[in-house]
């Protein structure tokens, strides 16, 4: 595992909003093909980290590499098309569910892949809604549409921001099964979550983020069961820190 090449590397990355430091990461490596869970309380900077990894924003200071290339401006289209995000609050376009799923294929000029889309619709229990206007869907349905839409064009890197926050246990299983399928295909996954059990089920490694800082990072089970940092233990046991 340690010899796997880096998908992302962060070095002294700081991100500020209006002067306030919301992310301050000395060093972090995300390996190609691994699933890294980013856990941490609300406001700790998980979504901000994902926005940097999606190239939506550039770090205020420090350096970020993607695929061994320094990201100092917006990457070329074919590079950034390898990465996609399922946002914490996914936005569906004012079109049918099916048209939403096809969007990523459409912008890439790929054929519609109807079979692939049918497969995703079925796998996520969305088949009966295929022709419904996507914006009329429930929160949990929209979340599944967003995941299916992201998977449709086979990204190399999948950034998932609380992908099951609005889902019931059955749908959580459907989503996690799909994520596992992609893991087996070598997709790199970064999963932001505050659900420790989900991290345990899906992630090879976990990183704990507190107030924008990576407190601890390591193999998931090891870190969750034998946290070395008292703040990690406090977070895991539910005693909020600070």
């Amino acid at each position: 595992m340690t010899t796997a090449p880096a998908c992302y590397r962060l070095e002294s990355v700081q991100h500020r909003y209006g002067g306030r430091v919301v992310l301050d990461i000395g060093s972090l490596e995300i390996r190609r093909g691994e699933t890294l869970a980013v856990i941490g309380p609300s406001g700790s900077g998980k979504s901000t980290l994902l926005r940097l990894l999606q190239f939506l924003e550039r770090p205020t200071a420090g350096r970020l590499w993607f695929d061994e290339r320094l990201v100092d401006s917006e990457p070329a289209l074919d590079v950034r098309r390898r990465v996609t995000t399922v946002f914490q609050r996914p936005f569906v376009l004012n079109r049918s569910v099916r048209a939403n799923l096809a969007f990523g294929l459409h912008v890439r000029g790929w054929s519609n892949r109807p079979a692939e889309i049918d497969h995703l619709l079925t796998a996520l229990g969305l088949a009966p809604l295929a022709h419904a206007p996507a914006q009329s869907l429930s929160g949990g349905e929209i979340q599944r549409v967003a995941l299916a839409r992201a998977l449709a064009f086979d990204p190399d890197v999948l950034l998932l921001d609380e992908p099951t926050a609005n889902l019931d246990p059955r749908n959580v299983r459907l989503v996690e099964d799909l994520i596992r399928e992609r893991q087996a295909q070598g997709v790199t996954v970064v999963l932001a979550t505050h659900q420790i059990f989900q991290a345990r089920r899906l992630a090879h490694r976990a990183a704990l983020l507190l107030d924008g800082q990576v407190i601890e990072v390591g193999p998931t089970a090891e870190m969750l069961d034998h946290a070395s940092d008292p703040r990690t233990r406090a977070f895991l046991s539910g005693d909020m820190v600070y």
Partner: peptide
């Protein structure tokens, strides 16, 4: 919504 643009960017739109 700004979220639309971020979403569309993340889905690979030019």
């Amino acid at each position: 919504d700004r979220a639309v643009r971020q979403q569309v960017f993340a889905l690979g739109a030019s």
